[in-house]
Nucleic acid binder design. Sequence first.
DNA 1: ATAAAATGTTAGACGAATCTAACAAATAAA
DNA 2: TTTATTTGTTAGATTCGTCTAACATTTTAT
Lengths: 221, 221
Amino acid sequence: MIHNSFTEENYLKTLYILSAGHGEVNVNELSKELGIKMPTVTSMMKKLAEKKFVHYEPYKPLRLTEKGKKEAGLIIRKHRLTEMFLVEKMNFGWEQVHDIAEQIEHIQSAELFEKMDELLGFPKIDPHGSPIPDRNGKMAWRSYEKLSECKIGESVKLSAVINTSSEFLKFLNTRELLLGTKIKIKSIETFDRSMVISYGKRNSESISHVVSERLLVEKPA
Amino acid sequence: MIHNSFTEENYLKTLYILSAGHGEVNVNELSKELGIKMPTVTSMMKKLAEKKFVHYEPYKPLRLTEKGKKEAGLIIRKHRLTEMFLVEKMNFGWEQVHDIAEQIEHIQSAELFEKMDELLGFPKIDPHGSPIPDRNGKMAWRSYEKLSECKIGESVKLSAVINTSSEFLKFLNTRELLLGTKIKIKSIETFDRSMVISYGKRNSESISHVVSERLLVEKPA
DNA sequence: ATAAAATGTTAGACGAATCTAACAAATAAA
DNA sequence: TTTATTTGTTAGATTCGTCTAACATTTTAT
């Protein structure tokens, strides 16, 4: 089991995340997401194609192979198990764990992550509500809806967040918007699509479209 | 606080370990320990000298600067806190943790290691009996003696091990030689310097010189 | 349908960390 | 005290991951 470089792992992971849904990614998108110039991305794609991780044809969108999906899934598994471990076992806040997990996801040690999994009781989702891939890198996609797509009067449960940046999560902390929070939509402004919602002890909090778009919710069964 | 590469950190750490005592290291020793050819080591020494981490003069032994010692001490701190955390909080055996810690020691996150330290109750030694440097990279050297240098009839306490390789530690496991074990020296063979010792329920275990040389002991106060 | 804009590729350069081959200095041995 | 051995350095090549500049293709807009 010869291993891939840190760099290759980052490309694979990002490719996986960006291709969620449609299954395809442009060189350009990948370039922007990674903060790496397009020519560099192109050459890395050729390398990963050589290694059978991606399907690459000039001028066509990028697609991960099955092998690539598995590899990427396993990296994401390591990332999310780490985030969960940091929050549950080391008392970090959900806004603190992303950057650390970005680094620990590259640690080469099956045992370390198996141990985390075990100590955590084999969690299915991470602290941001994202599914944790299984030992085969398989991810159980959930069908959440964006809060921004809900209608006035609906009652939903906050189940996941899209952006895991520290700033966004700190903002949610100040508004006491935690996973599991029951939210009711009171009104929506048409001109900027901001929403007024009520939840917990807060009866009329206003949140911008930028925020509501990043909040994934479930409707009560 | 701009950071050093993974590679530079490994040079610094190894330099620190090898220069324990005399304070000097040869290019050749360092080269062998790192498994990196001498010319490469020379050029890295020039780079680290440029950064004021080592004193380098052609054909002279290498010495860490104070800045270099601090930097190296902090890396070793991260390594040893990690080993302790893995053993104490994640149920790893002392023979399993070295390789994982070799990787985690390079994680860039003061908080992670502060949290480990805190959760562990600010330990002073790691699972192999080595001192954990403080937040300034300062290490409290202990004056242990090698078991191989003790005399017949002496009673000592096993306080640290020199080699932290998995193989050696597994061997100690099979002999039930744990840190803290009280050992009495029953006899010493002159031709191969092997020892017969008694401890716990074992009344006459024979250990080779290669082993006794790697066991650090304390004499009862 | 043609021009403009966006996207993608090729070619060539660069820094980091490594190597080998050849040479130089220091140390040990004869 | 010469010579041999060991240790250390210089020079030049290689690989990886990155870049910029120039060119090619595809998509969008006029």
